[in-house]
Design a protein around this nucleic acid. Sequence first.
DNA 1: GTAAATTAATTGACTAATCAAGTATATGTC
DNA 2: GACATATACTTGATTAGTCAATTAATTTAC
Lengths: 142, 142
Amino acid sequence: MSNINTSLELLMQLSRFQALVARKFDQLSVHGLGFNDLLVLHTLQQAPKEKMRRVDLAEHIGVTASGITRMLLPMEKNGWVSREVSERDARVGFAVLTPAGKRLYTEAIKTAQHIAEGIAPGQQLNDGTLQPMFNFLNNHLK
Amino acid sequence: MSNINTSLELLMQLSRFQALVARKFDQLSVHGLGFNDLLVLHTLQQAPKEKMRRVDLAEHIGVTASGITRMLLPMEKNGWVSREVSERDARVGFAVLTPAGKRLYTEAIKTAQHIAEGIAPGQQLNDGTLQPMFNFLNNHLK
DNA sequence: GTAAATTAATTGACTAATCAAGTATATGTC
DNA sequence: GACATATACTTGATTAGTCAATTAATTTAC
């Protein structure tokens, strides 16, 4: 039984943890949303005018362009997100949070926060010990 | 634009980071293996006698029982993993690393460690700053 | 200003997983 | 020791995403 380096060890543990978390959320299916759907709504809600280019949205949540097309499809059908085209660049499409989408988000995010608290209580997180972890993640995500 | 609690923020950032990492690995497709396949091989290799109950393997890497059945199928077909039944409990099946599987593992893990180093250099990790992160993860995974 | 390269998005074909249901075995209860 | 419940898996149907190819528009280079 040989060991592996710290880097790979970290990535593997993160992967396992993430699988756990995603499955818990998806199972509970907060308001019919998967974890990634929630991530889409949250990202849009944080964006200026609650609107983003589809590619940027894809990049932000870590799926391919194709992936975002497929994820947004049912969300558009349900009227949570709408589509807008750019005037200055005919290639780009925007995804915009609709009022219905925002209402759903507001409800769903409450539930999600409770679930998250159940997994990783804020208490543990807010004493600063894990600040380096946030820094590490932020470095890789910006 | 309202904010969310630290717990959910953490889970969302982890999800994004993980998506990034998994996609990078899967793209490079180390010796034809996906990141999760690698995780399976690694987990088996760490286990006593390089053998585990399928259910435990599933739990360890964070997929469902059904998921592990489907993941192991091609790996068995390729002769990297073999199947063994328990004598004391006819329900349980074991997954065992074969010699070919071990050889593949030994090669693939080297490449994987290089890729991992490229993402999260051990240098950054080994100064102890991120120890709380490892503790946090271990708490949730044990 | 035209040709070549790049970028944004979608689509078809596929892979990787989920869930729900089903089968078989084991365990706990009375 | 029979019956109910729990556990270990597998399978069919479905969902969530990938990749490779394609279309269309924009930008760069000359």
